[in-house]
Design a protein around this nucleic acid. Structure first.
Lengths: 312, 312
DNA sequence: CCATATCGTCAACGGAAAATTGACAAATGA
DNA sequence: TCATTTGTCAATTTTCCGTTGACGATATGG
């Protein structure tokens, strides 16, 4: 039987408190977890869980095994980390996590480039706007725009993520161009729909004054691409990151409004590259970070969309 | 891939210095070891061995992995020991090592009895007159007659292993009965053939005097059963352990000579049960030891072959 | 100096142990 | 009460592990 897998399953069962829960986390069937636990018990000649009706409780033996197993698995993991970090050529599987829109636009195109450069490297791009767990999902590198990078991870600031309020020239011509934050209340204004979404749009003025305007739009998305498409179709205004709006602004398909105000979102102003401390020295992570800096530093390519005098 | 197996293979390769050697020790094919090492290197993205012509040399990365792997494997092993020792019902596989003759005669009959008593227990009896390694051969319990029990094992003295010089009545009638140690030189006398076998027969007299008589026999065995058969066939004298000779003596098929002298062999006078410290508390080991004591203590059944006055 | 044995490796095959599937009883909660 | 969830089991499929038998390369011995 597969030791590592069984032991990990056991630890997961202990931590989640149920086999079904562990199976979900481990992305396998309940039957397998059940069989692995049964196999462990058969091998050790010891009952690890007390299965009363529907509750799992660790037996004293199970507790002993749990403590030892944690140590052993940790030793195994630390071995792998230590050895893996010794190499100097990027190889193996690099799993990158990014948000849907940014990942599709600016990370996905990097994959063929980087894999072509390093023949032993494979890449997977996991696009999701939900928070992913670096450990659980085995993510080598997560690109996040967030206010507070996770504590248990190494967070490296890549660049500022600017946002603009914009709409199509057609829309502005028809509905009028907002000159003051208060004007926004009269416009169809799309906000990103997220769990803790506020119904207000917060703006930070040049002099530090803040304005909070209630958002009004009769359809909402949790997908930035949909918001972008709606804006491009002339359905209203939206706060868009410059990496999306920039090229369209330059081509004249979008115009910015209220340039003296900076939109505030729950995501913060910066994009971070996050990875677990154990992967700091991984060659594959290193070369990808270098590629990111080469692409986006000091100024990302999408930023030069307005004339120099208006670019602070 | 099978982590535990691959890591163990790697450690063995390091320790033996060659893949073929490791394969022999691990009882598998060279191809498998080779593939496991290659797989490890592929996974880690690191070269573990420098394969020049025909020598294997650890790379610096391999050295790091070796140190970590030792620790990790040790953690795994200690986990198994700790948990296995928690149970109280004998179960699993009990591997017993014993010498050919003694094992066949007195240990083998215990196996059906003990397995019948404990339904979850399986037994394997490894008979060999060669020294076995408790670790390498995964022996739970070794029965050895030796002068010096291994240092790294728990050795528990079970009982004295007496030996007698004997022959058939026919033989003694034909060739004469030796009255003094020196007389043995004129007889066909079979000694056990072992690596460091001396060609002499050493006797210890009642008063502490020692006699060393050259052994003369034109055929020799490294197998006690063959010696026994030869003696029973009237081909000569031999030193036989009482567990073999005893029953025949009582039935009158063999007679002892030079009863005032104790034959000295390289094996010492005592039978030990040896096991690694990690198995001290294993239920299966415990119950088998109890069975051994029940059978052979205080006096083994084969010892009462002479009349009480001659039994010291 | 050649013959032989041994070494590490490779590709293909066969089989054993995985993991999935689909079902079941038991137990919980609406 | 019914619907859901949980842990388990038997049967099936799939995966991958280990053997086999070969190869070139390289020591070793006569």
């Amino acid at each position: 039987m597969n030791w590592l897998s069984s032991w990990e399953s056991f630890v997961r069962v202990v931590e989640t408190g149920s086999m079904a829960g562990a199976a979900r986390r481990l992305d396998c069937t309940r039957a397998q977890v059940s069989k692995q636990i049964a196999e462990l018990e058969r091998n050790f000649g010891v009952r690890l869980f007390e299965r009363s009706t529907r509750k799992l409780a660790l037996t004293p033996s199970g507790e002993v095994f749990y403590q030892h197993a944690l140590r052993a698995l940790d030793a195994v993991a630390s071995t792998e980390i230590a050895v893996r970090n010794l190499g100097d050529t990027p190889c193996g599987l690099l799993r990158i996590s990014a948000s849907l829109a940014f990942g599709r636009l600016y990370i996905a195109p990097l994959l063929p480039r980087i894999t072509a450069q390093y023949p032993e490297l494979e890449c997977e791009l996991i696009l999701s706007d939900q928070l992913v767990d670096l450990f659980d999902d085995n993510i080598d590198l997560a690109l996040r725009h967030t206010k507070a990078p996770p504590e248990d991870a190494v967070a490296r600031r890549l660049f500022a993520l600017k946002r603009v309020i914009c709409a199509t020239p057609d829309y502005l011509a028809t509905h009028g161009r907002p000159e003051h934050p208060g004007d926004l209340a009269w416009h169809a204004c799309f906000g990103y729909l997220q769990a803790e979404a506020s119904n207000t749009l917060d703006l930070l003025g040049r002099n530090g004054e803040q304005a909070s305007i209630p958002i009004s739009s009769r359809f909402r998305f949790n997908n930035l691409d949909c918001i972008f498409d709606a804006v491009m179709a002339g359905h209203g205004l939206a706060i868009l990151p410059t990496y999306m709006a920039g090229p369209e602004i330059r081509r004249g398909h979008l115009e910015t409004v209220l340039d003296d105000y900076e939109p505030l979102t729950g995501f913060g102003r910066d994009l971070y590259a996050c990875y677990t401390p154990s992967r700091v020295r991984l060659p594959k992570v290193r070369v990808f970070l270098e590629e990111l800096e080469r692409q986006f530093s000091p100024v990302p390519p999408w930023e030069n969309f307005r004339s120099a005098d208006r670019n602070p």
